[in-house]
Design a protein around this nucleic acid. Structure first.
Lengths: 368, 368
DNA sequence: TACTGTCACTAAACCGGTTCACTAAACCGG
DNA sequence: CCGGTTTAGTGAACCGGTTTAGTGACAGTA
């Protein structure tokens, strides 16, 4: 390549510095049409080999990179999938459940050549974030089907798969059998002789109206717990169902709150492992031994569950697979523009008994 | 709004179903120009109130949503920041260090109204992913400054901030004082009388040439360890520096490998908490008591570190802040197009002594 | 009445690519 | 040497918005 071609006049040099080169600049410099430059990158077989190489050389020397936004516009696809969550990203990333889910999503998306874009409330508005997001489809996790943004996406005709949510006509979905998992957890405790239970639910993001959100997941698990307890003649009064953020701290403070209210359970049914671990920590600090004085059952079976002390008895759910399946379903819809039947996947859960649960203590401690 | 306006002819109805409405459709339906529709959304004050409202009503009825890709193209900004990592997303999300970092990044980005886009190798190629990504700037973490993709981004003129990497002229950066942190960890062990040490380093992603990557972080920490050990007259032979993935399993298998090679340390210097926790688990399974038989020091001080058994002695680094600072620096560059001085931030580290370290055992166990 | 200013709105250019429809030249068998 | 096919490349339209420069109607002023 001749230096004459690539040495810019001072004027051109100025120009280059202020705006990045466009396809037209490359075309002019190489003495070909814009079309030829486009071909050199996208379908070189339509050009003679030498022309294609020369164009790419010129482009390289100019520091040209095809503007991906412009390409998206003409292709009318972004090769990006959205992950929609009702909570702030900062919250999301501290949630091990979400990390596992993302892992599954990321794995599947990567395999299929898609990028990932996390959509979470912007300036408190999920609607704004959805409006701005440039994605070919959306995996919505933890949003109830009647969430307003779900409607927004449906209205916009964007492909969407719902995870951990109720079914919505026209959309695929992935859920786990929360109710069965919850039943297994409760049965385990009942068999160990526990009759004084505390349920710590996951507190959803506050709804616009200010009331703490109740997601479908929470409801289903609670239904499972209740079914077993009622069957065993155990009453679960309202004050024995508390809620906390799904984090270690959230579980810890929820247990403390219940304790401060005078509740003295022999066992805790936590709706997430993070909460369970937090509850164990709080209980320890109150002088309780686990599982001698207090049994704790979690939910999720995150990697950590087996590594805490004592190892946590919990309900396993295939979180990674949930993410991967959601992406698979979403892409089925994204890639074939034809209307295809929405598919609904329900994955199984199972109880993993470790060391955080044991027989109910014969006599309860009356005073902390 | 008259029903006549909104009831589409069958033909129009077909058309609407196949492609989402464009700005021109709204304009036609409302009997105004495209410009007016654009104004109705972006600068309603340039329209009479009633016209603006009518246009928005029509748009709503049509299910119109401005195409964000087209908007990006004309605005020449995407309001999105990229987080560049050399590892696959699926790997990233299982890494608690990264989760914390992302938390910091996400928090700052959200505050400033930016979305986040994670850029990781696509089909094994980071370059491909970078080329596709539509971002206004990039936070690169864990890439060495001589990484080829870093050059690619520089060439494209995209603003970039480097985290945990060597300084690069023209770019801001954020690092922590790894060397000082490593020194503190080593000093602690030396003071406790340990002389038989094992270092478990973080194994970077394999380089294209196949050799295991050595990031700057690893080098700096190793330098810190060495400085102290040499000062105390302790030799750190090559076989006493092993590497593993930065995960619990990675730490576990690295320790097992070293053990199988006949190495019998009284203390472990792990370059991440995840590795430290894994090493503790492996040691336990080999019958060692911690800290009686083996002391372990981690690095990072992730939330979990205080909750494992025994609570982990580790070097604290402000991971969240690292992410937040990186975004701050990046936006300074993105938002003012003027060339502004790159800034370099170095954050402090400090040793947190918990219960995983203790005095060196008087006699070493000879046989497992 | 002519002049200026404001208001409400529009036509056309533009962002930076891709692609459709077409052409000139080279090739090829008969 | 002719008609048909390939090859290599081009110009213009297009993707779906935003923005610049203007236009006509109307009100206010001198």
């Amino acid at each position: 390549m001749g230096a004459t071609v690539l040495t810019p006049s001072p004027e051109e040099d100025m120009e280059r510095r202020r705006t990045r080169p466009r396809i037209a600049d490359v075309a002019r410099e190489a003495g070909v049409s814009k079309t030829a430059v486009s071909f050199a990158f996208n379908s070189p077989e339509r050009l003679s080999a030498e022309t294609a190489i020369r164009i790419r050389e010129v482009a390289g020397a100019l520091g040209y990179r095809p503007n991906p936004v412009a390409r998206m516009l003409t292709q009318r696809q972004t090769m990006t999938l959205g992950v929609l969550t009702p909570q702030a990203l900062a919250v999301i990333f501290s949630n091990p459940f979400f990390a596992l889910f993302s892992e599954g999503v990321a794995h599947a998306a990567e395999d299929l050549g898609y990028e990932l874009h996390f959509i979470s409330p912007l300036h408190g508005s999920l609607a704004l974030a959805v409006g701005r997001s440039t994605v070919d489809g959306v995996v919505a996790i933890g949003l109830s089907a009647d969430h307003p943004e779900v409607g927004q996406i449906r209205g916009a005709g964007l492909p969407m798969v719902l995870v951990d949510s109720d079914d919505l006509p026209g959309h695929s979905s992935v859920v786990v059998d929360d109710e069965a998992g919850a039943r297994a957890a409760a049965e385990h405790l009942v068999e160990l002789g526990h009759r004084d239970l505390l349920v710590i639910a996951i507190e959803g993001p506050a709804t616009p109206s200010g009331e703490p959100g109740r997601t479908g997941v929470t409801e289903r698990r609670l239904r499972g717990y209740r079914a077993v307890l009622e069957g065993a003649g155990i009453e679960l009064s309202a004050e024995r169902v508390v809620a906390g953020r799904s984090s270690i701290d959230g579980g810890s403070s929820a247990f403390q709150r219940a304790w401060a209210m005078g509740i003295r359970p022999t066992a805790v049914l936590a709706m997430s492992d993070a909460i369970a671990i937090g509850a164990m920590r709080a209980a320890r600090e109150l002088g309780l031994r686990i599982p001698d004085d207090l049994s704790v059952v979690g939910f999720d079976d995150i990697d950590l569950a087996g590594h805490v002390d004592p190892p946590l008895t919990t309900v396993h759910q295939p979180i990674r697979q949930k993410g991967a399946d959601a992406v698979r379903l979403l892409l089925a819809e994204v890639e074939q523009r034809e209307a295809n039947r929405p598919e609904h996947i329900r994955l199984e859960t199972r109880l993993i008994v470790r060391a955080s649960t044991g027989p109910a203590p014969q006599l309860r401690q009356e005073v902390p």
